[in-house]
């Protein structure tokens, strides 16, 4: 399954409201599931997702082919658990996600610690089909369920001094072996965005994928999704969102600043110090299929290039 056309790829494909009305129930159930955590999963078993290989949405001017669910669920980095993707998926099942609360603090009027249900209550969950490009040069197309981060931040009323947003992942060394062993990165995992990036309508907090709640290995119960940046920016299992005056030191950037910048915008003309970012393997594509040529901002340039108008992207990579 190659995505052949490089033009005409709209930023995000929000599900048609018609389709969506039917899915309202589903979202309610989703909410119930995130809070009550009991067997509602089967309610959405018969969903109307395109089979892999078919276009995600018939009749819409886009040609994103969804990556099969099984691939999304079995191919994900979660270094807190393991450096190996398969092991990480298995180990992540031990993560307790219910109850879950998120602290919102820093340069805001209305900070506090909120239950996940409170965080979700004011937001409209929608489906967003985004490309996902990992710094390891593979990519997927993922139907996320979530809401724009901006909506949540606005509710907290950022002060004019808030210039950056820092996200922190859960720290549970008893459950996360690499945290316990102090392996590699400084734990907990930290990511960050500039405030205008965080407020951008493409930037999401996701609670689900493929019409169901997020699998634990994919960042349950709440993760960031920034589709024009490398996947490691899209931090999983968020417990804290801080608005700051200055840029935070983020995990990968702190670990290897030459290889991983703060911005980490997808950019085929800025290679990693040891490998090229010019092309990517689209997961789900068969043997003897060429790689996809990676696009600047992962193809979302039309929507986000304005954020970086006067910046040298080779310097601020």
């Amino acid at each position: 399954m190659i995505i052949k056309t490089k033009k005409n790829i709209s930023g995000n494909e929000i599900t048609d409201p018609q389709v969506f009305r039917d899915r309202r129930k589903l979202i309610k159930a989703l909410l119930a599931l995130t809070t009550a955590g009991s067997g509602i999963g089967s309610v959405f078993a018969a969903s109307d997702y395109a089979e892999p290989g078919r276009l995600a949405h018939n009749g819409l001017a886009n040609n994103l082919v969804l990556t099969p669910k099984g691939l999304i669920q079995n191919y994900t980095n979660y270094y807190e658990f393991s450096f190996n993707k398969q092991d990480a998926t298995k180990l992540a099942q031990k993560l307790p996600i219910d109850p879950w609360s998120v602290e919102i603090s820093g340069e805001v009027e209305k900070g506090g610690v909120f239950n996940l249900e409170d965080i979700l209550s004011g937001q409209t969950l929608q489906e967003y089909i985004y490309r996902f490009r990992c710094v390891e040069a593979w990519s997927m197309v993922i139907p996320w369920m979530g809401f724009p981060l901006g909506g949540l931040l606005k509710r907290a009323q950022p002060l004019s001094t808030a210039k950056f947003v820092k996200f922190t992942s859960v720290y549970l060394p008893e459950i996360m072996p690499n945290q316990k062993n102090d392996a590699m990165l400084d734990w907990p995992y930290v990511e960050g965005l500039r405030i205008d990036e965080a407020m951008h309508p493409l930037t999401l907090l996701a609670v689900g994928v493929y019409g169901d709640t997020l699998p634990k290995q994919n960042g349950a119960p709440l993760r960031l999704v920034v589709p024009w940046k490398y996947g490691f920016k899209s931090i999983k299992a968020i417990v804290k969102i801080e608005l700051l005056k200055r840029a935070p030191i983020t995990s990968w950037s702190g670990f290897a600043p030459k290889d991983y910048g703060f911005y980490a915008n997808v950019n085929p003309s800025v290679p990693h110090s040891r490998w090229s970012q010019y092309s990517e393997r689209v997961l789900g594509s068969g043997f003897f299929t060429p790689r996809r040529e990676t696009e600047l901002f992962n193809g979302y340039g039309e929507q986000v290039a304005g954020l970086y108008k006067h910046m040298d992207l080779h310097h601020f990579f």
Binding site: R274, W275, R281, P290, R291
Partner: peptide
């Protein structure tokens, strides 16, 4: 060269040039 890149030489060339590990 074949299964992964399907002999798209331009992409292969850039991949090799830009990847010191290769």
């Amino acid at each position: 060269l074949s299964v992964d890149h399907f002999f798209v030489w331009q992409v292969i060339a850039i991949d090799i040039i830009e990847s010191p590990y290769i």
